[in-house]
Amino acid sequence: MGQKIDLNSIPNHVAIIMDGNGRWAQARNLPRSAGHKEGVEVIRKIALAANEIGVKALTLYAFSTENWKRSLAEVKYLMQLPELFFNKFLPELIEHDIKVRVIGFEEKVPPLTQSVIKQAEKRTMHCKGLQLNFAFNYGSRAEIVHAVQEIAKKVSVGTLQVESINEETIRTHLLTAPLMPFDDVDYLIRTSHEERLSNFLLWQNAYSEFYFSDVYWPDFTTEMFFDAIAAYQKRNRRFGGVSDKKEKE
Rank of each mutant, 00 (worst) to 15 (best):
Q114R: 14
A47V: 01
A142F: 13
T221S: 06
K88I: 00
L188Y: 11
Q149E: 15
W68H: 05
R123I: 04
R171I: 09
R171K: 14
P111S: 13
L72Q: 10
E195K: 07
H96R: 12
K118W: 10
G241C: 03
A34T: 07
C127Q: 13
N205S: 11
R238F: 05
K153E: 11
R238L: 08
D183M: 08
G20K: 07
L78D: 05
I94F: 00
D219F: 02
E247M: 06
D214A: 05
R141D: 01
E249G: 02
R235L: 03
F210S: 01
E247I: 05
T159K: 08
P181V: 11
I53P: 04
K118Q: 11
N51E: 04
L174T: 07
K99A: 11
S198Q: 00
K99N: 11
Q149W: 15
Q131I: 14
G54Y: 11
S192N: 03
V100L: 05
A228K: 01
I16M: 12
T124Q: 09
G104V: 10
S198G: 02
L58G: 04
N12K: 15
S192T: 01
V162P: 08
K88P: 00
A177M: 10
P11D: 04
G240M: 06
N205G: 01
S192I: 02
A73H: 09
K69N: 10
C127E: 07
I5K: 10
N137H: 14
Q3D: 14
N199L: 05
G54A: 12
S213W: 12
N133D: 04
D184C: 13
D97Y: 03
T113R: 08
D183Q: 13
D183Y: 09
E66V: 08
T59S: 14
R28H: 06
F105Y: 08
K88R: 14
P91T: 04
T176Y: 14
I16H: 02
Y216H: 04
G39N: 02
A230F: 03
K118D: 03
C127R: 10
I229G: 00
F136R: 10
A15K: 07
V162T: 13
V155Y: 15
S192E: 03
N199F: 14
D214P: 03
K122H: 12
K56C: 00
R141N: 09
A135M: 08
I16P: 00
